[in-house]
C-alpha cells in the first residue's frame, strides 16, 4: 500500500456529495466499514444507495468528499477496472451475467487471474483452475448447470451465478445490490444463508429493500435517506427510530 494508513477502516467515506443536473443524489454521505464486517444498507427509493455503489466502484466521481479503501487508497482517482483489481467486487441490482457464455465460463472470466489483453490472448489456463471453478459452483449450487448458457437460467439462478462470479474475483470487499429482488421466499432464505457463509471470510456491503431479509442477515444496519445517513445500528434499534419510521411510513 502506498503511504501511511489514514484510517483503520476497510472502506471509509466522508462527506461525499454527488449531484446530477442539480439533483443532489448524495448530500454528505459518511460511512466506515471495518475489515471483515458485513453491513446492510437500507433506504427508500432515491435514498442514494446505488449512487453510493457507483462512487465506490469508480463509475461516478463525487463532487466533494473522500473515499478511501484499505486505509490509504483514494478510490476517487481510479477507474472501474483499477478498483476491481484492488479487490472490490460488485453485484448489480439487475442480474448481469454474460448470457451467451456457459455458467462455468462466466465464473472463469470472473476468476482472479491476469486481466491484460496480452495475458488472455496468449496465456494458458493455470493449474487448479478447474478445481477453483468446481468449488465456486458448488458454493452457489450451480454445479449441475455448469455447461448451460447463462442466458437460460432462472432469475434466482442468475443472482446466484453473479454472487459466484463475485466470489471468483476473490475480492476483499463485496458490494451486493438488492440480491433478493424478485426472488421467491425459499430463494431469499437460501440467499441469506449464502451471504452469511461468504461473510465468514469477506467484507460485504448489502443494499436491500426487503426488511425481512435484512433481519434474517442479522448484521449492523445503516439507513440512508435523501443522500445521507439518518440512522445506524442493530436492526431492532434502527427500526424503532422515529426518523426511520417516518421515512418508511410517510409523514
Amino acid at each position: 500500500m502506498d503511504g501511511k494508513a489514514l484510517t483503520s477502516s476497510l472502506l471509509y467515506l466522508d462527506g461525499v456529495k454527488v449531484s446530477f443536473d442539480g439533483y443532489q443524489a448524495l448530500r454528505g454521505l459518511s460511512l466506515a466499514l471495518t475489515p471483515g464486517e458485513m453491513r446492510a444498507i437500507i433506504g427508500p427509493n432515491g435514498a442514494g444507495k446505488t449512487t453510493m455503489m457507483d462512487v465506490i466502484t469508480g463509475k461516478t466521481r463525487p463532487d466533494e468528499g473522500d473515499v478511501y479503501f484499505a486505509g490509504s487508497i483514494d478510490l476517487t482517482a481510479l477507474d472501474e477496472a483499477a478498483i476491481a483489481e484492488l479487490g472490490i467486487g460488485r453485484k448489480f441490482q439487475k442480474p448481469t451475467v454474460f448470457e451467451s457464455h456457459t455458467v462455468e465460463d462466466n465464473v472463469l472470466l470472473a476468476l482472479k487471474a491476469p486481466r491484460a489483453a496480452a495475458a488472455t490472448l496468449f496465456g494458458r489456463d493455470e493449474a487448479g483452475i478447474h478445481r477453483r471453478i468446481d468449488a465456486i459452483l458448488a458454493t452457489v449450487g450451480l454445479s449441475d448447470l455448469r455447461a448451460h448458457l447463462a442466458g437460460g437460467l432462472s432469475h434466482g439462478q442468475k443472482q446466484w451465478l453473479e454472487i459466484g462470479m463475485l466470489l471468483a474475483q476473490d475480492p476483499k470487499l463485496l458490494l451486493v445490490d438488492e440480491p433478493v429482488a424478485g426472488m421467491t421466499d425459499a430463494e431469499t432464505a437460501q440467499t441469506a444463508q449464502l451471504l452469511r457463509s461468504i461473510a465468514k471470510d469477506h467484507s460485504i456491503v448489502v443494499v436491500e429493500h426487503d426488511m425481512a431479509f435484512v433481519r434474517d442477515l442479522g448484521v449492523k444496519v445503516t439507513v440512508l435517506h435523501e443522500g445521507a445517513v439518518i440512522a445506524e445500528g442493530p436492526i431492532d434499534q434502527v427500526s424503532a427510530d422515529p426518523k426511520v419510521i417516518e421515512v418508511y411510513l410517510g409523514r
Partner: peptide, 22 residues
C-alpha cells in the same frame, strides 16, 4: 480467453469493466 472476454464485452460491457478488464 481473450475471445471470451470479447463476447463478454458484447453482452455486458460495463459488467466486464467491473470484473477488472480494460
Amino acid at each position: 480467453k481473450f475471445g471470451k472476454v470479447l463476447v463478454a464485452i458484447r453482452d455486458a460491457e460495463s459488467r466486464t469493466r467491473f470484473l477488472g478488464y480494460r
